[in-house]
Each structure stands twice: as C-alpha cells, then as structure tokens.
Design a protein around this nucleic acid. Sequence first.
DNA 1: TGTACATCAGTGAACGCGCGTTCACTGATGTAC
DNA 2: TGTACATCAGTGAACGCGCGTTCACTGATGTAC
Lengths: 237, 237
Amino acid sequence: MTATTPRARARARTMADIVRIGRDHLAVHGAAALSLRAVARDLGVVSSAVYRYVRSRDELLTLLVVDGYTELADAVDAALAAAPVDPAQGLRVLGRAVREWALAEPARYGLLFGTPVPGYQAPAEETSPPGIRVIVALMRVIERAYAAGVLASPEPPPVIAHPLSGDFAAIRAEFALEVPDWLLARGISVWTGLFGAVSFDVFDMYGPGSFTDRADLFERHLDNLGGILGLSAAASE
Amino acid sequence: MTATTPRARARARTMADIVRIGRDHLAVHGAAALSLRAVARDLGVVSSAVYRYVRSRDELLTLLVVDGYTELADAVDAALAAAPVDPAQGLRVLGRAVREWALAEPARYGLLFGTPVPGYQAPAEETSPPGIRVIVALMRVIERAYAAGVLASPEPPPVIAHPLSGDFAAIRAEFALEVPDWLLARGISVWTGLFGAVSFDVFDMYGPGSFTDRADLFERHLDNLGGILGLSAAASE
DNA sequence: TGTACATCAGTGAACGCGCGTTCACTGATGTAC
DNA sequence: TGTACATCAGTGAACGCGCGTTCACTGATGTAC
C-alpha cells in the first residue's frame, strides 16, 4: 500500500510523526501523562488537528503499544537470526536482546510490561499479534533445544494436572509446538523469570547501588533460567 | 508514643485517614493520578487543609510506598511464622504469601513493583528499610534450607566473578548471611523470578484467557524456582 | 484540458473539568504562669 | 482555678496551569466529467 497522492503521503508522514512524538513523551513523562495536546504542540499544530489522525488518546496509546511490541520482537528476531545456530545458546541470545532493548527504551518497556495505564484497556485484537511474538520466539528456541537433545529430561517427568494441561494442549495446537507439558511449564517459568529480572533492572528495583555489574548478574540469571530447562551451565556458556 | 492530648489523637486519626484514602484512590485511579485535592474531598475538608498533614503530593506517595512495603512484608512474615518449619517449604510459603497479597492489593503492588511513577523518586532512607524486608526473608529461608542440607550443591560450584562477588560479600556481611556466592546468585534469580511471575499474574500479562488456573501455574513456577536452588521437586511439595 | 464539486487538513474558540500550592484569616484547643 | 498567650486545624479565595473533546469555519488538494 504505497501512498500515491501527495496528500496521502503527507498523511502517512504525519501519522509516523505522531507516533514518534508520542514515544518521546512517553519517555519523558510516562504513559499516564501522555497527552494529545502536548503531542499537537510538538507537531506544530493546533490541538484539535490531531483528531484528524487519531480518534482519541486511548487510540494513540494503542498505536504506541503495538509499535513497542513490534520493535521489541523485531530486535529479538534480529538477534536470533544473527546468532550462531547452537541450540543451547538460543535462550541467552533472546534474553540479552530483550534486556538490551528494555534498557534502551525504558519508558516503552514500562508501557508494555509495567503497571497497566489506569483507565486504559489495550484492545486484544490489535495488541495481541505483536504482543505474543516474543513468547512464541522463546518457545521455538526451547523447541529447537529439545529437538537437539541438549535439554536434560527430568525422571520422572513432572505431571501437569487439569485444567492447566488443557490450556497447554491448546497452546501446543495453536503454535504447532512440539514440546511436552512439563517443558511448556518450564518455558513459561523462564518467560516470567526473564521479564522479572529485566523489570528489576529497568525499574531500578534492586537496592540503590546493590550491584555494580548488572550485566553479569543477568548472565548468572540466564544460567539459572537455562538450568530450569535442563541446560547444563557449561553447554550454554 | 501514645498520643496524650485530644488534639494529638485527632491528628493521628486524620493522618491514618489520609493514608487510607490515598490507598483507595491508588486502587481506583493509579499512582500517577493520585491527587491531594481528591484526598481532601474524601476527607471532607478543603484542599489546602491537607497541607497541615503532608508537605506535598510526593510525601503522600512516600507514605503509601512505606505503608505498602510494610504490609507486604508483614504478610510474608506472618505466613512464614504460621507455617510448619520444614526448611524445604519456606520458598513455597513465602511465594504464596507474596502472590496472595499482590492479587488482593493490585494497585499497591503496582506502586511498589510496577513502572516508576514519573517525576517521583522514592527517598531511599525511608523506603529502603521496609522495602528490603521480603528479600531478606527470602534469603533467610534459603539460608535455613542450605543449613538443613535440603539443597543439592552443584558440582563444581559455579564461580562468581568480580565485581559481583564483591557485591555479594557486602550483602553477606550486612545481613550476616551464611550462604556461598553461588547460592546467593541463585537466590536473586529466584527473587526476580518470583516477582516476575506475580507481575504477570497481577498485571494480566499472560494472554487473555490463556490460563484457567493461574494458582496451579504459579505452583509449577515455584517448583521450578525451587529447582534453581537445588530443591528436589518432591521435597518441596 | 478545463471546470465543478467533494474531500480533507488544519484553525481558533469554546465547553467544563481537574490539578498543586500559597496566603491571610478565624476560631478552637492547649499551656505556662 | 483562672487568665493570657501560643499553637494549631481548617477555611475560602486565588495563582497559573494543563487536559480531552466538539464545532463551525477556511482554504488547499484531489477527482469525475
């Protein structure tokens, strides 16, 4: 859908400007303080003009959420594509990509993974597709490691009970994932554990000055998350 | 410091009312929208009167942060005190207490563990002492399990490099913790992993309707976090 | 190729709202002699 | 026990600010004939 007419091209450019300005405001003032009037000011336009492009403040928030999920997932995909295909390394590559993007974009990270914005509910139809890309990528990484035989299988494998096993079956079917229940459960632990550590880092929730080298601390965390999956520490170095 | 005079007693009561009302507003409108004027309205008093009790909006936020940390830590301490002293059970008891408090008090949890409130920086001298209570309790739980010999030691034990090992030494000294570096590193992974999963739950970050029984999912997560520490799954059931 | 009409971007004023904070004040409560 | 003074809670008006959203409008751009 290339814009043919000058007017249409100008519209696309303005639309992109609005998202860009919104991103900057997010970074400075936080999501709750995001204001259409302020965006209009920076756009050099009277406040009511923004309504030609965006139906309401909430719609701008949705644009920013989609934009953020997409950039994060693109960063993760790019990192995975650029890394050597060693199946024991996938988690580490993915984890680092998430952390680096989050540290570079703390406000957008906060919009996606922090306190929900009061009074705003993201419409799932729009935010879900980009929103699930990272967890799907993580599950693919785990699936590959499992297929390659680098994950130690627990003996006996932990049993996942109903109704959780039903949810797992649905997930497995939706994404054509070839991993057993116990590994899916571990993958979800790794997922929440990964974002937990990134949030501690980005939101500065370790005590002030507790850790001088948070990158190293994060690498140890990745060791431990790999351990959950049954990766030996040596294999994932 | 019992309040002797009627005026002093009235002041203490009003102070408590302000914190209580602030809590309620937090729950409804979020931290960024917390307003002294709204608190004054609910207190049944003109807006400027609140300044007799609280120097500014930020000071009220600090009161609420301290209040939140204290209640959460009290809940954790109470759960640990009430539970049987099985050292393999401590993590599970603590984790459940955190999750239950968080689900019961999502807005206050968000204030403590969500996106930082823009333009507000919590003063460490006041918020640190209550803020560290949960991680200290977690480390005690781990220390006890280690002393009881229920944690499988890795062979060889992972080496923690400088400068992280220096930070660990400082932490060990400050809290008189008797755990080796590798276990401290694992404890921190468990800490961030625990709060990561609780945030996913409270902030509804799993897909909508992904999991019908999140309590069970959380129990599996606790299994996996126990696994990081070297607790056998059977021992911690 | 030229004209008539439709579409659209942006204007400027207005609506009604809420916010944090300051200030001079009144009147009740507490305290020192 | 009584009086004079100091302390303090709460009032009401004001400051200057920002917000989302609507509406009738002007003038430029696009399109159908």
